[in-house]
Simulated scan of single mutants.
Amino acid sequence: MTQEMGFGVVADGGGLRRALGGYPTGVCVVTGIAEDGLPHGLVTSRFIPVSIDPPLVAFVPPKDSPAWVEIAARRTFCVNVLSAQQEHLSRQFAVDAPHQFATVQWHPSSGGAPVIDGVVAWMECALDRVDDTGDHQLVVGRVRAVGENDGVPLVSCRGGFGRFAALSLAARGADLMNPLNLVDRARAEMESAAEELGGRVVAQTLVDNEVVFIASAGNLPDLRSTVAMTIGSRIPAIPPLASLFMAWEDPDLVEIWLGFVAGEEARQSARLRLEQVRARGYSVYLADPANPRNEQLLRMMAEQRLPARAEELSRDQLELIENLTVDVLDFSPRRVQEVDWLAVPVFGPDGRVSFVLGLEGLPFPTGWQDFERRLARLEQAASNVTYAIGGQVPV
């Protein structure tokens, strides 16, 4: 039931509850150890990040919650962010019943509060303050320790549960505003291709001699271990990296790019790779299980532990990058089952490569036909985006 009042509508409790039910929220279990040494927990979807400095979070339990009374007495609690596989725990902890933890695997935080196994994230907190807010309390905690795990968070909305998986992600930064404006017009194509192919489509751009992973669509399936770049990651634009950008670039800039390769023989090999990329119109990275240093290097890039500026790289790091199996000259149908990354260019109005669309996270192609299917879908997306931004494909 609602009443008109001024320019808005005042709702009764039921109406407000229904309206708020349309707002999706994460689901957490707040846990603690009572004075008698027993663990207690209560479920809440009213969890609020408050401040990074100082580190403060808050949640809003009912005033009549017996579990919170027990937990508050010890002034230490843990916020456990449930994963999409833990919907049963949201029901289990919604009732303040004995033996809540009987079937729950957990371990104590450094302060003793229960950390539930398998949660997406957890935060151990010291009770900072409690304010009365109508029929609830606003509890503010000072975060003392945190942890996180892989997984997709559980989401509550309109009385039901679901899972959160981002359709797309985008990087931030003042130097990325123009590229992002173009990539925004590619979102629908990226999302469509990612959904159809089942992997993740990533957009890369070139900014000040750095390759930036600027946006993504889709999610990485749990099909195999994949080294995936974090959106916002930057890697140095030196051979054989950034080959799709350089394949259609001004020759003077290409020579600067090649200047990071030591020795004329190696530079000639890099030139041949570049000609091959331009002729084929795509770039590939081949997995090399026999060379574990390749994966170590990729993980350093993904975790942003490798300098993005070429001049800051050590000689050893330069050699590792130079020997990556990117756009190898002997790539053929015989090696197609090694393809771990596939990328194609999107051209801007000036005929230069505006950004690159890459495909990652899929099982290795089963054969050449499977590879060509992926390539054709990615090329279709790139062609549609090139047209959408008024791009010109060089002849």
Rank of each mutant, 00 (worst) to 15 (best):
V10D: 03
V140F: 12
A217P: 03
V95Y: 14
I256W: 12
L359V: 01
F331Q: 00
A215P: 09
T31L: 10
V356L: 02
R293P: 03
D132E: 09
P49Q: 11
E124T: 09
Q86H: 04
F371M: 07
A34T: 00
G391I: 02
V81Q: 04
L241F: 01
P240K: 04
R185S: 08
Q137V: 11
G361V: 05
S233Q: 02
L253P: 04
V119H: 08
V211N: 06
F59Q: 01
D208K: 03
V130Y: 05
W106A: 08
P179E: 04
D370Q: 07
I231G: 00
R271N: 06
D330R: 07
F364I: 04
L359K: 00
T44P: 05
T325Q: 12
T226P: 03
V10H: 05
D36E: 03
A270H: 04
S109C: 09
Q105S: 05
A94C: 02
V50G: 06
R315P: 09
D12C: 10
W122A: 03
V152F: 09
A166H: 12
E255H: 01
V104S: 04
L318W: 08
P55M: 07
R335G: 15
G160Q: 10
G37I: 00
E195R: 12
F7A: 10
A102Q: 09
R334N: 11
A266Q: 03
G281M: 12
G6H: 12
L244Y: 06
R309S: 05
A266P: 00
Q85Y: 09
R352N: 10
V115E: 07
D36Q: 05
P221I: 05
F331A: 00
V261R: 06
D175N: 06
R142S: 10
D316G: 12
Y387E: 15
L274Q: 14
T205S: 08
A34D: 01
H88M: 02
V328T: 14
A308S: 09
D12N: 10
T76E: 12
Q86K: 03
A343P: 11
W106R: 01
E148C: 13
P363L: 01
H99A: 15
T325E: 13
G13A: 15
A382M: 03
A186C: 06
W248K: 00
A170C: 11
A67F: 02
Q85S: 15
W341N: 08
A302L: 13
V81N: 02
G41W: 07
E196N: 04
A94S: 08
D175L: 01
E249N: 07
R299Y: 10
V326L: 07
Q337K: 11
S156K: 10
F47M: 14
A34R: 05
